[in-house]
């Protein structure tokens, strides 16, 4: 590898003319790192495709944008399964209005789930097994409390995942979905207590909603999943 470090000004002097067009090596040499680049490169490429830390039997969400999309797909699977159960076994005293709204939400979550499944194609994770043993589907309080938890979690998950997405097309798709989740969250909160659609348990002093990292979201979600998800290959920044 050529070492063009001599092109660099000695110390902070930028009066030397810089070449207009540089190749990659020259670019690297401008970083003052050409001599060691191979070593650094090797050192930096760590574990991104290495599942050594993955617990046996767990489902790897994957890397990069595909990993984030699978993460969203996992959450949508959870929500869709929940609302399907809610509509299949309505809680005691469910009003016609509630049934209509919850049916809409079920359909929205199914649309999200099936969208991700179709868009991811062969890269999609498998269908997850859920665990709703902590939910009393006969109880309005239990169902709506769980629903509130899922919707607020979904909003915070998409808000937190946005910055992990590299492709602006995927970012836009996440944006199209998260505002629908926020509409759900506000409605469910209002069904529990009118006026709590955006209270200070979710909105901070700056008027900002929650944003959570995948690891934190999955810790909460794991209570409702029999399948074990592995997020260790997801981007972290």
């Amino acid at each position: 590898m050529d070492n063009k470090n001599t092109l660099l000004p000695a110390n902070g002097n930028n009066s030397l003319p810089l070449p207009g067009m540089l190749g990659r090596r020259k670019f690297l040499s401008y970083m003052g790192l050409a001599a060691t680049s191979a070593t650094v490169l090797a050192a930096c490429r760590k574990d991104k495709d290495d599942n050594n830390n993955m617990p046996p039997g767990s489902i790897d969400l994957g890397t990069g944008d595909i990993g984030i999309l699978n993460y969203a797909y996992a959450l949508e699977q959870l929500e869709a399964a929940f609302y399907t159960q809610v509509i299949n076994s309505p809680f005691s005293g469910m009003t016609a209005n509630e049934q209509s709204l919850l049916t809409d939400i079920r359909d929205h979550e199914i649309a999200h789930r099936e969208f991700f499944k179709a868009a991811l194609g062969a890269m999609a994770i498998k269908s997850l097994e859920v665990n709703f043993s902590s939910v009393n589907f006969g109880s309005r309080d239990s169902v709506l409390a769980t629903s509130k938890a899922f919707e607020d979690l979904g909003v915070s998950a998409y808000n937190g995942a946005g910055q992990l997405i590299k492709d602006s097309n995927y970012l836009l798709l996440a944006g199209k979905i998260v505002s629908v989740e926020a509409r759900h969250a506000a409605l469910i909160r209002d069904l529990i207590s009118n006026g709590s659609f955006a209270d200070n348990t979710v909105i901070d002093m700056n008027g900002l909603d929650l944003a959570s990292k995948p690891a934190d979201v999955l810790t909460t979600a794991s209570v409702f999943l029999k399948s074990k998800l592995y997020a260790g290959n997801l981007p972290t920044s």
């Binding site: 808000n159 505002s179 926020a182 509409r183 969250a185 506000a186 900002l208 909603d209």
Partner: peptide, 16 residues
Amino acid sequence: TAALQIHSVEARHASH
């Protein structure tokens, strides 16, 4: 991230 955090608040408002 901050813009997304505002975006979802607007959606909660819209819902209500």
